[in-house]
Design a protein around this nucleic acid. Structure first.
Lengths: 245, 245
DNA sequence: ACGACAGGTTGACCGTCATCAACGAAAACG
DNA sequence: CGTTTTCGTTGATGACGGTCAACCTGTCGT
């Protein structure tokens, strides 16, 4: 199983020409000229305060968003009000892909902290993708990667127990922080226990208990939202050999 | 929540020029000329016997597959051997999207019955998508639709109880059969109880029991793999008002 | 700076579904 | 065509995580 995203880009909190439009072009080594053209894509930027929506479910889709700073959650809701977090996104990741299908967003994207996102008008992206082959290829990879990520989550929700889910979640977060040049050992959770639980198909009490349990076992240190991984290997072992509990 | 795919195409068991390359072009109304060009995409066809793999996990990705006849499941496996079904696909649907991301498949696609698939070489598709705008747009929609579908499954796995999951599953199947011109009321399951359970995050015994329970309640008739929906509305109600159990 | 409230922890109890097991029926095989 | 194997059903039991509740701590807003 692999909740880990591919090892991506470093230094992301920089100017667009530096950050290379996030995951959209870095890995493919576009020409300088192409990179310059891609910058045309970026229209406005949007700053969001904590809890503000970048877009809401059912709103018309017209743009993707590259997270420039901060972090987000995406949530989907049932008619009866039940809500589920379908993902947490951080710097450099792309939001809004769910809207392409029907022209309306099917999830809402909510800032977990004060954040900033670059607006990528979708019509422009499609046009440019036709001209720059590398951009098209990379965009398809981003879409496919999201499909793969969600399959990992399905696996997690379908076959793993609470401990395993939490372990996988923490390791995934660590991996993504590390990929961004932050510590992969010590980090701060941007989301609440309830949001974690929603994402992992658990109740907040179970999340809290399991974290405490990990701490007793010496696997991690928890202090409110601050997490420190103390024994990555055993944490990883939890996922692979769940029955040895 | 919406496990239902958009109402798509009818008459699919026909020649390529008739079936309009499945979900790839029908909804967008391409010109006749474009449709003709798209037919170039189809290389060989592959016939598969029941239980045969269309592609295996970790195999190199080079093509997508449009299901021409029959049906498939996609499965993902953990190192420890646990396996999960991530989807069931039927005529007209596209397989292989998971491979675009890394160039290797992350799931295996297994025929649930004797089946046939059209091979769409991916390099050709990318090239043609640059030339035919409608094709590019449609392909993006297909990718996005898969993202949305998986989000529905995450919701199902994360928040629903066994009864609700089964009800959602049956209604989704019915909807897809109907969209293909078959009966949406009476149909034959192509998969085993174990495969259903794996997809829904349940054990096969629970699937069996829940189906029996639905039958006692007069919601459906079950006879081995044959299903008949007797009260769609109450079935639908199960999903929306789970607490009234 | 203070107070209110959201967020987090822990405990006791209970329900849903997993597990183990036995049996029966259909389908695949030679 | 009969045998073997896969598939499905049903029952008894128990564990994992949900639920309800009380309490504590930190954070946010004024």
């Amino acid at each position: 199983m692999d909740l880990q995203l591919p090892p991506t880009l470093r230094q992301l909190r920089v100017a667009c020409s530096q950050c290379n439009l996030m995951e959209l072009c870095l890995p493919v080594g576009l020409s300088e000229e192409d990179v310059a053209r891609i910058e045309e894509l970026i229209g406005t930027r949007r700053k969001l305060k904590r809890h503000q929506a970048l877009y809401e479910v059912r709103s018309p889709f017209q743009a993707l968003y590259a997270i420039r700073a901060g972090s987000f959650k995406t949530t989907i809701v049932l008619e009866d009000g039940r809500e589920q977090v379908t993902g947490f996104q951080m710097t450099g990741e792309l939001l809004g892909l769910d809207g392409i299908s029907t022209g309306q967003h099917v999830v809402s994207a909510i800032a977990l902290e004060d954040s900033e996102a670059c607006v990528i008008e979708y019509a422009r992206l499609e046009a440019l993708a036709r001209e720059i082959q590398g951009l098209q290829a990379q965009f398809h990879k981003v879409l496919s990667r999201e499909i793969v990520r969600e399959q990992s989550v399905m696996m997690l929700l379908g076959t793993m127990r609470a401990e395993e889910r939490l372990a996988a979640f923490l390791l995934n977060l660590a991996q993504r922080f590390a990929a961004r040049g932050f510590s992969g050992t010590e980090f701060r959770l941007r989301m609440t226990r309830e949001e974690i639980g929603s994402y992992l198909g658990l109740k907040l009490e179970t999340v809290s208990r399991t974290l405490s349990h990990f701490q007793e076992e010496g696997l991690i240190e928890v202090q409110h939202k601050n997490i420190r991984l103390r024994d990555r290997e055993r944490l990883r072992g939890l996922i692979q050999a769940p029955l040895s509990h």
